[in-house]
Design a protein around this nucleic acid. Structure first.
Lengths: 99, 99
DNA sequence: TTGCTAATTAGCAAAATTGCTAAATAAGAG
DNA sequence: CTCTTATTTAGCAATTTTGCTAATTAGCAA
């Protein structure tokens, strides 16, 4: 559901999470430490990103490791380029009406 | 600011506007006619897109012509790719990295 | 079991977004 | 000037998002 993706990207802290994950997977706690917001707040940001499939989570014992879903980000950038007529594949995707 | 851009993209109707403008500039009325929402609602969507600099408006007598700001959309797609480490440097290895 | 750390969920209030109708503005025609 | 058309702005209610604190779950170890 593409709408969730764009909504997830609409918050600066969530974009910063993606930026941080760019250099590799990170533990939830290490991510949260990079922000001023409270842990629960960051936890929700992470769940929004996960819901949008922009990141995925893997439990490692006590902690949870997050990693960026590169292909989804890539596809979204592609969708954006499609708006201006740059079609890289034949994936001319817009057909979403409303929600 | 970039935040406005992603926020503007977070609504399906606003993305549809961009999609419609892809084939060329359109009058506000013609755009509004493509949606179920009321005219004032569409007018606000247009103003959000304009605020984000994703589209620009030009008055033509009685009516207002909207066009997509291609470069801004392009830059946003580039910013998205940057999250996954693809640098869209004008100079060299764009092709290589985009692989 | 208890205790500790990591992370999420629950619940609430403040803020922002959405979409409507009604009113206002802008430009042209007569 | 008035009238008509095109579009935006004002103002309001419903919904969604945000961020907090407090409570809860999950895993691990003694």
């Amino acid at each position: 559901m593409q709408n969730n993706i764009f909504k997830a990207l609409a918050h600066p802290d969530r974009r910063k999470v993606l930026s941080l994950l760019r250099s590799g997977p990170k533990l939830a706690g290490d991510l949260a430490a990079e922000f001023d917001s409270s842990w629960p707040t960051m936890s929700r940001h992470l769940s929004v990103l996960k819901e949008a499939d922009l990141i995925s989570a893997e439990r490692q014992g006590n902690q949870i490791l997050y990693r960026i879903n590169t292909s989804v980000v890539e596809d979204t950038a592609g969708a954006l380029l499609a708006f201006i007529g740059v079609s890289q594949n034949d994936n001319d995707d817009y057909e979403e009406a409303a929600e």
